[in-house]
């Protein structure tokens, strides 16, 4: 799968959170990222796993320019986007999309489904009102939501459906690169499976590249081409799912593999007993 050119390259990314209100002694702050380097190829699905506090979410946000790193570069398609200002960044905004875990927080509860999905088009000033509406319907259908739900308020959608809406919205600007930050963590297992399948389909149709952020090794090993393990702001191990699961090297990885396997045993036990 490594046949393509790299779409994203991260070099020496570092970031530290400093709390302004703390006493001078504490000013050192928390290290979120420490000299992180990563390369992602077009069409690849790469997962970054780690426990909470390992820095994976910070990495995602820095790549998506929701936050700025203290030092290092982020090369997207050859251009260093980490130093661009707002107007220079605009064309790239449509290329990189971020989907968050908290679907309820990511969608304005006062909006209808159509307004949610249309929003990127509205902001970027693309198309007329009718064109935007029809594109919204098209997108909703692609993520598996019924077209006549277009006018429904967001509050009427379930968790899994809201994630689909988030995905539909992310696709509106025809991005090349999708970052999913714990996007499946809040869903039950069957919904997770459905959304995963959807994501795979979309990747096929549109030639997308995915960056998954998760704490769930078992989940991402089903979909990822490569897995990177993060701990305390650094990438400690990287490899294919098979390599990681069968031959984990770093103590962190070992820990994650153990809990993933434990969960899988539980699931299988449940299934055997007569659950779904």
């Amino acid at each position: 799968m490594n046949s393509g050119k790299s779409i994203l390259r991260v070099n020496g990314l570092s970031k530290r959170y400093v709390s302004r209100n703390a006493l001078p002694r504490r000013r050192a702050g928390v290290v979120a990222l420490q000299d992180v380097g990563l390369e992602i190829v077009i069409g690849e699905v790469i997962a970054v796993v780690g426990e909470s506090g390992s820095g994976k979410s910070t990495l995602a946000r820095c790549i998506a320019r929701m936050e700025d790193a203290d030092s290092g570069e982020v090369f997207f398609d050859g251009t260093d986007i980490s130093k661009l200002n707002t107007s220079e960044l605009r064309p790239f905004r449509s290329q990189i999309q971020l989907i968050l875990q908290d679907s309820a927080g990511a969608l304005n509860p006062r909006f209808t489904a159509a307004e949610i999905v249309e929003e990127p088009l509205v902001i970027q000033g693309i198309g007329t009102t009718e064109e935007r509406r029809s594109r919204a319907v098209e997108l909703m259908q692609q993520v598996g939501l019924a077209a006549d739900w277009v006018e429904r308020p967001v509050t009427q959608f379930s968790g899994g459906q809201r994630q689909r809406l988030s995905i539909a919205r992310a696709l509106a600007l025809r991005p090349a690169f999708l970052i999913l930050d714990e996007a499946l963590s809040g869903l039950d297992l069957s919904t997770q499976a459905q959304v995963l399948n959807l994501l795979l389909e979309l990747k096929q149709s549109y030639g997308l590249t995915y960056l998954f952020i998760s704490h769930d090794l078992g989940l991402v090993s089903r979909i990822a081409d490569r897995i990177a393990v993060m701990h305390a702001g650094q990438i400690v191990e990287c490899g294919s799912p098979q390599e990681i699961l069968e031959r984990p090297q770093h103590p962190q990885t070992i820990g994650l593999v153990k809990s993933a396997l434990a969960m899988r045993r539980e699931i299988n036990a449940h299934a055997a007993v007569g659950g779904r």
């Binding site: 929701m66 905004r93 908290d102 990511a106 902001i123 970027q124 600007l173």
Partner: peptide, 25 residues
């Protein structure tokens, strides 16, 4: 600080847009 505001900013929404559409209502 709400999620949807951050996302809208990620799409390139200007301050005025964010205020008008999300915050002031």
């Amino acid at each position: 600080e709400r999620g949807y505001v951050l996302v809208a900013r990620g799409f390139g929404g200007s301050d005025w847009y964010l205020l008008r559409r999300h915050i002031l209502p």
